[in-house]
């Protein structure tokens, strides 16, 4: 008898408020055909307005739902032990004024830090000396060196992040994207443990 089903929880799921979540939404399923339809429409969660925007659905709960309906079935699970359900509320669009403000914050911050760095390491003196070493003449403002240098800074940063104003130099993800991914992963991990009521058991639970 083909009484074994395989399920694999998805890592993340986006839902709308008040949406019902079915088994097929939160997991990949492999089972015999005649129960597949029923199984995939098995309701596992109903998002209610009093939920936070992050809900963690533990695999044990899901197994509970399935065995309740199909006691004779054997469940093989693989992959993540929980799914993080993110409720997408209608977000009020970030106003362009705000974006411009942040942009200027970063712009001026970056400009100030590079100037402070140059002052800190006496860049002007070093460049004057370099000019003298190369040409034998003294130049108070060695702009011949400094202007390419300034554009080079921008070029170097773009090179590092592998972005040429929306255009990729090659296919690999940039360190920034990897960093974003890692950060999201760490957040998910935290949420999976801390928002999941099943994974932490308090001693004085009553």
């Amino acid at each position: 008898m083909e009484k074994t089903i395989y399920i694999r929880m998805r890592t993340r799921l986006h839902v709308f408020p008040n949406q019902s979540v079915y088994l097929k939404d939160i997991a990949q399923i492999i089972s015999s055909e005649h129960i597949f339809q029923e199984l995939s429409m098995l309701p596992v969660y109903k998002v209610s307005p009093k939920d936070n925007n992050l809900i963690v659905l533990d695999i044990m709960k899901v197994i509970g739902f399935i065995t309740e309906r199909y006691p004779a079935i054997e469940i093989q699970t693989m992959g993540a032990p929980q799914t993080i359900i993110e409720v997408v509320y209608k977000r009020n669009k970030l106003s362009p004024v705000f974006v411009v403000l942040i942009w200027f914050l970063l712009f001026l911050g970056a400009a100030l830090t590079i100037m402070n760095f140059h002052e800190d390491v006496s860049m002007q003196e070093v460049q004057q000396r370099l000019y003298t070493i190369m040409t034998g003449k003294y130049e108070a403002k060695p702009l011949l060196f400094q202007i390419p240098y300034s554009f080079g800074i921008g070029l170097g940063m773009i090179l590092f992040f592998n972005h040429l104003f929306r255009k990729r130099i090659n296919e690999e993800p940039s360190p920034l994207e990897v960093e974003m991914f890692n950060y999201q992963q760490a957040l998910d991990q935290y949420v999976a443990v801390n928002e999941n009521k099943e994974s932490i058991k308090q001693l004085d639970d009553h």
Binding site: R129, Y131, L144, Y149, F151, G152, G154, G156
Partner: peptide, 27 residues
């Protein structure tokens, strides 16, 4: 403090390379 007496335009590629390196560091 050596003095090399090279033409000044050689400073342009040097500046660019130095800048790219500092840019990489900053990024």
């Amino acid at each position: 403090d050596p003095i090399l007496h090279l033409p000044a335009f050689l400073l342009i590629p040097m500046g660019l390379a130095g800048g790219v390196f500092v840019g990489l560091l900053a990024a």
